[in-house]
Each structure stands twice: as C-alpha cells, then as structure tokens.
Amino acid sequence: MEDNSSVQHVILVLSGKGGVGKSTVSVQLALGLREKGFKVGLLDVDLCGPSVPHLLGLEGSSVHRCPEGWVPVYADKEQKLAVMSIGFLLADKNESVIWRGPKKTSMIKTFLQDVHWQELDYLIIDTPPGTSDEHITVVENLANICDGAVLVTTPQLVAIEDVKKECNFCLRTGIAILGIVENMSGYVCPNCKECSNVFSSGGGKSLAELSNYPFLGAVPIDPRVNGGNRSESIMKSMPSTPAGQAYDQILTRLLQSIEENVQRKKNGMEVSN
C-alpha cells in the first residue's frame, strides 16, 4: 500500500471453502470494530462474487476519484467505516467479471495501492475461496504489514479439509493465524427451539485444538444476521441472541490475539537485535 503508514492493523479473512460466511464475518467484524469507536476499512477482493456491498446495503453506491486516488464508499455519516469492492464499479447486478488471473492481480494491486483510506485503525480484507491469484497477490503485497488471518470454516469435514489447506497456505506464506471461527454451527428451529447441527458441529474447535491456533468462537445459523438492519452489527442490534453473543466473544478474542501477536513480533525483534 502506498500510504499504508496510516493503517494500523490489517486483518485477512480467509477460508479455503466458499459459502462458509467469510463476507458475513468480515462485515460483522468491521461493524463491531466501528461500534467500539475504531476507524475501519473493509476491502472486498472477491472480484467474481463481491457480496460486501449487498451485506451492508450499499448496492448502487459508486466510488469517486480524488487527487490522492479512489475515495471508498462510506457506510455511515461519520465516515468511520470505509468500504471498497468491485461491486461498486460494475454497472448493473447482472454484470459478471470474467477475468483470468493476471487481470485480477492488477485490479487487486490497484485496490491496495490507489484507494485513499485516510487514517484507519483496522483494515479488514474479505477474500474469495481458494488459494490462488487473489490470495497470492494480497499476501505478496501486504506480508510485511499484515497482522494475520482469521480463518472461517463451517463444521463439516469437507470445509475443514479446505481450511487445513488454507492453514498450510498461511504457513507457507508466513501469515500469522489469529484464530479460527466456526460459522453455521447448529440451527435453532424457530418452532421448537431444538438446536440441530445442520452441518454437524465442533469441527472448527477441534481443528483449532489440533493445530494449536486460537479458537475465536462458534456462531449458530441465524437468518437475522444478514437480514434486517444492515448498518448495525448483530452484537448491537440483537445482543442477547446466541449469534450476537458469539460475535461479541469472537471480536474480544480477536483483539486479544492481535495484541499477543504484536507483542510476539516486538519480542522477536528485540531478540534479533
């Protein structure tokens, strides 16, 4: 990033598998951090399937140019949550981005270099599934200033398997793993309140234990997380629901994990000095 000096923390949200809730988790973390009073940026590098504009109710917004670069879209009046996604650059919702790797790479480089975020406490980067062009590009460009990655998974075996691949990706590229979130862990029947494990459960937790990464929390399926009010996090709008509590815990643990990671890096530097 050109003017990255003003960005304090960069957090990647990763998952090998699609549809596990990377975008939802990214959006909830961004909203939650904003509600704690931080200035937050949210960058959506999923070029073929950008979901962040929809999840924040920002469809139809567009980005402008200023002398310093692109002005991101602000999700609130106080301009504390800045959002950038390719969705803002597409003319209509049917339009698809049919690009091979190199073109995607140059688009992401533009996002990383030319967006004028101003001062940010946290920049959250939402990624597409997989371990390919988008990920390699982000990591190549941000490896030095990235705090680490949050891995999102659902409890089924297929998803866990893909997330293990993503762990391996982080290891090989030197990205710290800040923690694992297990999403879609159980569904509470609205009729009888019985919680059934639609996609089984506990997979994320046991993966975290096995691989010795922090487990940030398990979020049950709640259709309300992405419905209704899109300018507030579920932690604020429905603090007493299991999903709201789960996100609250995840955010607290994530901030701890970032802090520990910063300390570790500092200590490492002192040792090497």
Binding site: G101, T105, S132, H135, E161, K165, N168, F169, T173
Partner: peptide, 13 residues
C-alpha cells in the same frame, strides 16, 4: 496429503 495447499496462479491451473 489432503492438507497440502495448491497455491497456484491461473496459468498453472
């Protein structure tokens, strides 16, 4: 191993 990540850019895929 099933944990191996395939970190490939487009042309290799």
């Amino acid at each position: 191993s099933s944990d191996d990540a395939v970190i490939w850019r487009g042309p290799r895929k």
